[in-house]
C-alpha cells in the first residue's frame, strides 16, 4: 500500500517553509514515526515523520525547495 509523506499541518501560519534536508533516501526502510525529513521556517525546525512502516519509494521535493503545509513531499510503500 502506498502512503504519502505530507508536510504536517502544525506548520500552518508560517510565512515560508523550506525543506532543509532529507534524512532518508529512496530505497531506505523506515518505521512509522521515524523522523525522515527536516523542514524549517525562519525560527522553527520541524521534523517530518514517516506515516507508516515501509520503504521510501519517491522523494517529491528537493532540499532547499519552498514547500506548503499539506504538500506531498514523498511516498512510502508499506
Amino acid at each position: 500500500m502506498k502512503y504519502e509523506i505530507i508536510m504536517p499541518e502544525f506548520a500552518e501560519g508560517a510565512e515560508e517553509i523550506n525543506l532543509r534536508q532529507w534524512m532518508v533516501a529512496v530505497g531506505d526502510t523506515v518505521k512509522k514515526g521515524d523522523n525522515i525529513a527536516e523542514a524549517a521556517t525562519d525560527k522553527i525546525s520541524i521534523y517530518v515523520e514517516a506515516p507508516a512502516d515501509g520503504k521510501i519509494t519517491a522523494i517529491l521535493a528537493a532540499e532547499g525547495d519552498r514547500i506548503l503545509v499539506g504538500q506531498i513531499i514523498g511516498e512510502i510503500e508499506g
Partner: peptide, 13 residues
Amino acid sequence: HFERYIKGAHHYV
C-alpha cells in the same frame, strides 16, 4: 506537546 495549548507552530512562537 504545543498543540495541546495552541494551534499552529507560528502562533506558538
